[in-house]
């Protein structure tokens, strides 16, 4: 996916929302900027499929050697898929953050929080500050 087509949260998650069979499905990952800032990731604790998450709630954790970062859900809904290959291939997060490095897919029940997200240009501006 091209970052230009994604929405970004202040907390560095990216979201792509697609309409699949009448259902809004959000795919979520971490921005290249965030992955680089976290340096040398060593562990990811993926959420369980089926978990109900609320927008802005932490639903996943990524760890470097001496830091833990929460990944916050940008939307409310149910986790319908997680990227099972990530824990064993953490380098994917940095080599392809906006593609194979996706973290989870959420079936959206409430997308009102999407209004708080930024487009790529605005997000880049935040990162530069």
């Amino acid at each position: 996916m091209k970052p230009e087509n994604l929405l970004f949260a202040k907390t560095h998650e990216w979201v792509a929302v697609a309409n699949e069979g009448g259902q809004k499905i959000a795919t979520i990952g971490l921005s290249a900027f965030a992955v680089e800032a976290l340096t040398d990731l060593v562990f990811i604790e993926l959420p369980k499929v089926g978990r109900q998450v609320k927008a802005e709630e932490s639903f996943c954790e990524v760890e470097s050697v001496k830091a833990v970062s929460d990944v916050y859900a940008p939307v409310t809904g149910e986790v319908i898929a997680v990227n099972e290959s990530l824990p064993d291939n953490l380098e994917t997060l940095s080599s392809d953050p906006f593609g194979d490095g996706w973290i989870a897919r959420i079936k959206v029940s409430d997308d009102s929080a999407l209004a708080n997200l930024m487009d790529h240009t605005a997000y880049q501006k935040q990162c530069e500050e």
Partner: peptide, 8 residues
Amino acid sequence: QTREQHIR
């Protein structure tokens, strides 16, 4: 060490 109090 991310399990521990000084980080988490």
